[in-house]
Each structure stands twice: as C-alpha cells, then as structure tokens.
C-alpha cells in the first residue's frame, strides 16, 4: 500500500466523519438503539483491538501476558491511564528476563 495514499484515505475518512455532522447536521438522533450502539462502539473497538493483539505486543507471549495482567489489575482499581500503561510495560520488561 502506498504510504501517501493510505495517509490520505485515513485522514480523509476520519475528517469526514467529524466534519459532516458538525458542519451540516442539526437534528438530534432519536433512535434509542442507534444512540446505545454508538455509545458502546468505542469500548467494543478497543476490546477487539486489544484482544488478542496485546498478547504479542511486548515481544514474547508470556511477558506480554504479564503486562496485560498488570494493566487489568491496576485498571480495575481505577488507576490513571499513564500509571496503568507504564506498569504494563514495566511488568512485561521484567518478565522478559525470566521467560
């Protein structure tokens, strides 16, 4: 895939999604299903992008799994994004010495 073409497509699609409703739409979405659907999309996307990719994101599978586990636990306790992310990398890094 040509880099510039890919860049153009990514940026163009993303811009249109933001621009069209902001510039031209004035009505509220009434459908409860569509509102709920759009509400859940970001979480579903992030989950699908994370599983299974996270398990090969930090080198080997086992170090990656340690990193993912650290992130899960800390996220469960509501720690800030940056703490969760750093801890995941640290756990994966340390586990990398053993596995």
């Amino acid at each position: 895939m040509n880099f510039y073409l890919a860049l153009f497509v990514m940026a163009g699609v993303t811009y249109l999604i933001r621009m069209l409703p902001f510039a031209f739409f004035r009505k509220k979405i009434e459908s409860r299903f569509i509102r709920s659907f759009l509400d859940y999309v970001p979480y579903a996307v992030l989950a699908a992008m994370t599983v299974p990719a996270v398990f090969s994101s930090a080198g080997g599978t086992i170090p990656s799994a340690f990193g993912a586990a650290a992130a899960l636990v800390l996220a469960w306790f509501d720690l800030p994004l940056i703490v969760v992310a750093t801890a995941a990398a640290l756990a994966a890094y340390l586990a990398g010495f053993f596995f």
């Binding site: 970001p42 979480y43 992030l46 989950a47 992008m49 994370t50 990719a53 996270v54 994101s57 930090a58 080198g59 170090p63 990656s64 990193g67 993912a68 992130a71 899960l72 800390l74 996220a75 469960w76 509501d78 720690l79 800030p80 994004l81 969760v84 992310a85 750093t86 801890a87 995941a88 990398a89 640290l90 994966a92 890094y93 990398g96």
Partner: peptide, 17 residues
C-alpha cells in the same frame, strides 16, 4: 519491545473502569 504494550495498557485502562 516492552514499550510496545503501552498503548494497549491505555486501552485496557479506558475499558475496564
């Protein structure tokens, strides 16, 4: 390599809470 997990860590931190 370890830092490759950072972004996924953030995704997890957004979804789990």
């Amino acid at each position: 390599a370890a830092l490759g997990i950072v972004l996924y860590g953030m995704f997890i931190a957004i979804v789990i809470p």
